[in-house]
Amino acid sequence: MAQPGETQATDIAFPAGSARRMLASALSWFYLAAVYAFIFLPVAVLVLFSFQDGRLPVPPFNGFSLQWYESVFADRKLMAALANSLMVAVASSFVSCLLGFLAAYALARYRLPASALQRGLLIAPMTVSYLIIALGLLAVLNALQVPLSLWTVGIGHVVINLPLCFAIIYASMGDHHVNIERAARDLGASDVKVMALVTAPMLMPSIMAAFFLSITFSWDEFIIAFLLSRFDVTLPVEIWSMLRSGLNPKTNAIGSLVFLASVVVLVVLELALFGRSRKP
């Protein structure tokens, strides 16, 4: 514990120490840059070559062109897939949040049999791979003779997002809310009214966080959407089928758009919710 103080003292005494410190700080900046490059270089390349003026999304960069974005927006199938994705994302996230909230409310406020076990069971799907979940659902849907459609994709997304929504909302249901709900009940509110008028609005920041996070997960989820859909498909599945006919700056363009949409959702989430909840 005394070490930092000692180094500081030697730094003041010998200028050599400050050179060492500069080197350390240069190294840490380099490390930082490397990490971000590692994370974002693929995305940057993807976005860069979506503007490629030519038929191949590989170096060299021939010039700037918006032609691939034009062809993306002209592509009916892609646009239909985009609309499908949006619909599935919003609907499945809404259902996940609703079910997650109700489960969290019940487990946080009532004494239920084996509540620790129930909590564990609700969160467990998070640890199972999407592939396994998709295969399991496929088997069940087949057995029940339910035809594959966007509905079944939505069901799959609820299965993967419910644990997440439950975990986020449950974590925000502190004991300090108990007295507030009691006060509401004391003033004559029924259980349903307490939930709708007091608990849910109070937890709105975390409910919205859960909602937007599930939207981003559902929005670019591939395996479940691929295995559980048939004629109408979501955007990632459509992109996949485009990719099968080879690389093409158009796939870069649509990929960039998907990325942009996720970024927008995250920024909205950050500004609207976390930004506000930081204030008391």
Binding site: N179, I180, R182, A183, R185, L187, P201, M204
Partner: peptide, 28 residues
Amino acid sequence: PALRPTTTMFQDYALFPHMRLIDNVGFG
């Protein structure tokens, strides 16, 4: 509690954080 002729004022006040004061007071 709702049907008793009592109301409780809690130690931590238990105000509804998302409501304006007038809605807090008007809740009952």
